[in-house]
């Protein structure tokens, strides 16, 4: 998604009041932004705390600022700077974490971002988890408050058209309840259930924004007295599943079954690709089909 992100930034945010800071990352991805932004593109070096503080200083003078790094270096390393310098003053800074979930696979656990959405949600940051490349221009268009953008890979079925952007949107119809899938996992679930008859499969909803966003009534209608599935490449604490469960209670919705798949961390103590870790957590294509079987048991 980072190429789509770079294209969206270059096309829509190349203004005198917009800065782009990177923590020495973005090789073969951010070159166009660097060229377009000129001296408003700053490689702040390997110093993430300073990068966030500088971004806050710029934003305090009415600049809009993108801050880019590999996801954990973006939200975890400078957590206090995000909290104190950006959030307490409600500044227009968009934190861009590349490689959400296990996306950095073989790079190892230091490069994975499994609790980012919860951490940023807890601070009141607007969390955006695009499902598809085409979402990016829409989600970052008008940011004016602390925002966290989690980038992964567009994994929709080959040739499948992308439905118009919405914080929650249905990408595949079905009648056996509904799956709420966080970001790119919507593409995974979509592909996994494509050849299952609609009557036997749940619908698939791509969830990009789950803080302070109303869950559409149509989703509740689809899960009422049926099975509600949630799937996310994120730990259970503070993730999409907990959010949906709480919203369900507040709303007084009753479902026949709640099936939740999420990032388990490193259950075997072994490391591998994103696909390896997803398989271990049951959040890959096989895992989606297995969820369905589990619900029918």
């Amino acid at each position: 998604m980072r190429n789509a992100f770079a294209a969206a930034v270059t096309a829509h945010h190349n203004r005198e009041d917009c800065f782009f800071l990177t923590g020495d990352l973005g090789f073969m991805a951010l070159e166009d932004i660097k060229t377009a932004f000129g001296n408003r593109f700053i490689n702040t070096g390997i110093a993430e705390q300073n990068m966030i503080g500088v971004a806050a200083g710029l934003a305090r003078e009415n600049m809009k600022v993108f801050v880019y790094s590999i996801a954990p270096f973006c939200y975890a390393r400078p957590f206090e700077q995000i909290r104190n310098d950006i959030c307490l003053s409600d500044l227009s800074v968009c934190l861009v974490g590349n490689g959400g979930g296990y996306a950095y696979g073989q790079m190892g656990p230091t490069h994975h971002a499994l609790e980012d959405c919860a951490a940023m949600n807890a601070l009141g940051v607007q969390v955006l988890v695009p499902a598809f490349d085409a979402d990016i221009a829409s989600v970052i268009r008008g940011f004016s408050s602390p925002t966290y953008l989690r980038l992964g890979f567009d994994e929709r079925p080959e040739g499948a058209p992308v439905p118009q952007y919405a914080p929650w949107r249905q990408v595949l119809t079905g009648e056996f309840g509904a799956i709420a899938a966080l970001g790119p996992l919507a593409g995974v679930a979509w592909q996994a259930l494509l050849d299952v008859p609609a009557a036997l499969r749940p619908s698939v909803w791509a969830v990009t924004e789950f803080n302070d966003k109303e869950i559409p009534d149509e989703f509740w209608t689809q899960v009422s007295e049926k099975t509600l599935f949630t799937i996310e490449e994120h730990v259970v604490a503070g993730g999409l599943g907990m959010h949906v469960a709480l919203a369900m209670i507040h709303k007084g919705i009753h479902v026949s079954k709640f099936v939740h798949r999420y990032a388990l961390g490193y259950p075997t103590g072994r490391f591998g690709s994103q696909a390896f870790h997803r398989a271990q957590c049951g959040i890959d294509s096989d895992g989606v089909r297995d969820m369905l079987m589990e619900a029918k048991r």
């Binding site: 700053i42 705390q49 300073n50 966030i52 503080g53 500088v54 971004a55 806050a56 200083g57 710029l58 934003a59 305090r60 003078e61 600049m63 700077q81 310098d85």
Partner: peptide
């Protein structure tokens, strides 16, 4: 110091 640097840059 970082906040001040951001202000100075702006």
């Amino acid at each position: 110091p970082s906040l001040a640097a951001g202000l100075a840059l702006a």
